[in-house]
Design a binder for these strands. Structure first.
Length: 316
DNA sequence: AAGTCTATCAACCGCTCCGCA
DNA sequence: TTGCGGAGCGGTTGATAGACT
């Protein structure tokens, strides 16, 4: 992949040579020197001046993704950052640069990579789930009790349709227990409510638990969201019972608890929201001590066994 | 210990947007 | 008004490290 593109003209004299691939330290230094002199602009002049054999594009990318000050290089996404990304992706779609602008020290590439690996992981979980349920091979995986009996799931994929960007599909599931209704976004990228294209100030987290017998804080959906949802029901009322169970959060994992609305809601900040401090506070408040790799790490492998096999996008 | 799988990161490519002549 | 070039964005790919079998 990483090769060098070169043009040879005027005999064998090398008149144009574009270096590709990993950046060397010396190249970084040259780039930093240029930015300190002229600011982060005029990228193409870096090559035209003969400072680097890189395209302006490549220089800009290197600066934005690696050399820019205050970047959180090598830092995993915190639980709060994950939550912010999930919620903003539901609102904006795959507008990674826009989403990144809400996270201090994160680039669009970071967000994109995070989301991509999350999608892959989820697809794998679903695929494993459907294959194990088809083959009935549960020998090695103890089946978690109290799984909801999903009857339908409408899946959406960021890679299908006219554009892989944006257009989250409306979907949620609901659970009816007499008069009690739970609506939630269980797996944010699979069950996404269609959010109005609103500005951040208007943003409301697409998470809600309404249960009259619950003492949980209620976060009502805006009406327009309620009407946009495509609910389906499942009959297992154990889930309802377990929501009041302190161990329920463990069942879904800490972040699952966030997404199910079991954790305190936070308000997303405006561009350059820095969740690091908040996440520390939140984590200690919830007794969270480990660093979360992902929303799904703590999901039982076959939690989707009772779902109808979804149509997995061919490519994620 | 070795092979395989998975997650993550870094960088490229193609496309679109925007300013300018 | 239009064409051009630079900048920015999103999708994709390849390398690599770590986990798993």
């Amino acid at each position: 992949m990483h090769g060098n593109k070169r043009k040879k003209e005027k005999g064998d004299e090398l008149v144009d040579y574009i270096r590709k691939g990993p950046w060397k330290k010396e190249e970084d230094e040259v780039l930093l020197s240029h930015v300190s002199k002229y600011g982060p602009r005029d990228w193409s002049s870096i090559r035209s001046k003969g400072l680097l054999q890189r395209t302006g594009k490549s220089c800009r990318l290197r600066w934005v993704n690696k050399l820019r000050p205050n970047l959180k290089n090598g830092c995993k996404f915190t639980a709060e950052e994950e939550r912010v990304v999930i919620e903003l992706q539901a609102q904006f779609g795959n507008k990674w640069a826009k989403i990144a602008s809400y996270l201090s020290g994160r680039t669009d590439n970071d967000v994109k990579n995070f989301w991509s690996s999350r999608q892959k992981r989820l697809a794998r979980i679903l695929q494993a789930s459907s294959s194990t349920s088809n083959s009935k091979s549960h020998r090695n995986k103890p089946k978690p009790h109290h799984l909801p009996n999903f009857q339908a799931a409408k899946l959406s994929s960021s890679s299908e349709g006219e554009s892989s960007s944006s257009k989250p599909q409306p979907c949620s599931f609901s659970c009816n227990d007499n008069s009690e209704v739970i609506k939630m976004v269980a797996l944010p990228d699979l069950f996404k409510p269609e959010l109005p294209n609103s500005e951040p100030e208007e943003f409301a987290a697409p998470l809600e638990i309404n249960k009259s017998s619950s003492n949980m804080e209620q976060t009502p959906f805006p009406n327009e969201l309620q009407t946009d949802l495509t609910p389906f029901s499942f009959g297992d009322q154990d889930l309802l019972a377990r929501i009041d169970d302190p161990s329920f959060a463990d069942f879904f994992g800490p972040l699952g608890a966030y997404e199910l609305g079991l954790a305190p809601q936070h308000t997303i900040g405006f561009p350059f929201f820095d969740p690091s401090e908040a996440s520390c506070r939140m984590g200690s408040r919830l007794g969270i001590s480990k660093s979360y790799d992902s929303v799904f790490d703590d999901f039982p492998v076959d939690m989707f066994d009772q779902m109808d096999p979804p149509s997995i996008p061919s490519k994620l």
